[in-house]
Simulated scan of single mutants.
Amino acid sequence: MSDSSGLLPDSSRIGRTALTVGDESAVIDFYRNTVGLEQLTREASTTTLGVDRRSLLEVRYDAAARPRPEDATGLFHNAFRVPSRAALGDALARVRDGWVLTGASDHGVSEALYCTDPEGNGVELYRDRPQEDWPRDDDGSLEIGSWPLDLVDLAAAASDGPVSTVPAETSLGHVHLEVSSLEDACEFYVDTLGFDVMDTSPSAVFLAVGGYHHHLGLNTWHRRSVPPTADHCGLAWFELVVPSSDALETVRRRLEDCGVPVTDRDEGFEIADPDGSTIRLVAES
C-alpha cells in the first residue's frame, strides 16, 4: 500500500527522539537499566543515551515542566528495535528484573514488548521478523496484526546470563503518536511530507518509506484533542533522517511550497505537525 509516490527517499529513517522530563535521574536510570542504552553525554540539563556512540534518545530536564494533560496529543511510544530474538529475550529479562511489563504482542512483522518509563512515556522494545515472512493480504498489501506473544518461548531465546545493554545494531525503529485527527495527520505526513501508508486498523494508521512495516504510527484510540505546550513533559521532538543534503533540500522546498513553516537549525530544519509535534529533519552524516 503506497500513497505518496516516493516523495521521501526509500532510505529515510527515524534518527533520534527527545523527551522533556521532570525527574531526570529516574528517567535516565530506566533507559540505562531497563531499556539497556548507554549514557553518552551529560550536561547541565541534557543527557544523551544510545549505543555504539550513536545517540538514540535525548533527555531534557526541566524542573518547571508540568505533566502532560490526559487529553493532550503527543507520544504514544518510542520503539527501540533490537537486531535479534535473543536480544529481545534479554530485554524481557531486564524488564522483569527491575520494571513492569505492560504488554507483549506478536504483530506478524515483529515481536514486541511494552512498558512505560517513570514519567508515563510509552516504550516499545521489538525485533523484526525477516521481511519475506511478513504477513500479507491476498492483494500483497501488508497486514500488521496483534496476537499474543509467547513469553516463555521468548525468555528461552535469551542469553545464558544477564545482559545489561542492547546490541550495537539497536536503533530507534519507529515513533508512534497520538493525534487528534487521522485525516489531518495523514494529509500532513503522507500528502505533504511523503510517507507511504503501509496498513490501517481501527483508529490507527501505519506509515513508512522503502517498504518497511512502519516508521511512524498514528492513532486516535484515547481521543486526545489538545496540543501539548512547551512547558509540558513528554515528547520534545523526533528526528527524520534523509540520505543526503540534496534530498534534505528537496524535502524543504516541497514543504515550503505547501505552506509549511520551516525553522532553520544548524543540522537541518524543523517543522511541526497539525498537533504541534516537532519533527527535525537532517541529512545522513
Results as ranks from 00 to 15, higher is better:
Asp133Ser: 11
Asp117Gln: 02
Arg60Asn: 01
Thr229Ile: 02
Asp257Cys: 12
Asp52Val: 05
Thr102Cys: 04
Glu111Cys: 01
Glu270Asn: 00
Asp23Pro: 00
Asp137Lys: 05
Gly276His: 01
Asp139Pro: 05
Ile279Leu: 15
Ser164Met: 00
Arg280Leu: 12
Phe76Arg: 07
Pro83Asn: 08
Gly36Arg: 06
Thr46Trp: 01
Val251His: 05
Glu132Asn: 12
Ala156Lys: 10
Phe269Asn: 05
Ala204His: 01
Pro83Met: 13
Pro67Thr: 06
Leu142Pro: 04
Gln131His: 04
Leu88Pro: 07
Val166Tyr: 08
Pro202Ile: 00
Ser55Phe: 02
Arg223Glu: 13
Asn121Ala: 10
Arg253Thr: 14
Leu182Lys: 04
Thr17Gly: 13
Trp99Tyr: 13
Ser180His: 09
Arg252Met: 04
Leu7Ala: 13
Asp191Trp: 03
Ser12Leu: 08
Leu113Arg: 03
Gly122Phe: 10
Tyr114Trp: 14
Asp10Trp: 12
Ala44Lys: 10
Ser164Gly: 04
Ala79Asp: 05
Leu37Cys: 01
Ser5Gln: 10
Glu58Leu: 10
Leu40Asp: 00
Ser181Cys: 03
Asn33Leu: 07
Arg81Ala: 10
Leu281Arg: 06
Ala72Tyr: 09
Glu183Gly: 01
Gly89Arg: 11
Ser146Glu: 03
Phe76Gln: 12
Ser164Asp: 03
Cys186Ala: 00
Leu248Arg: 14
Asp71Thr: 13
Ser245Thr: 14
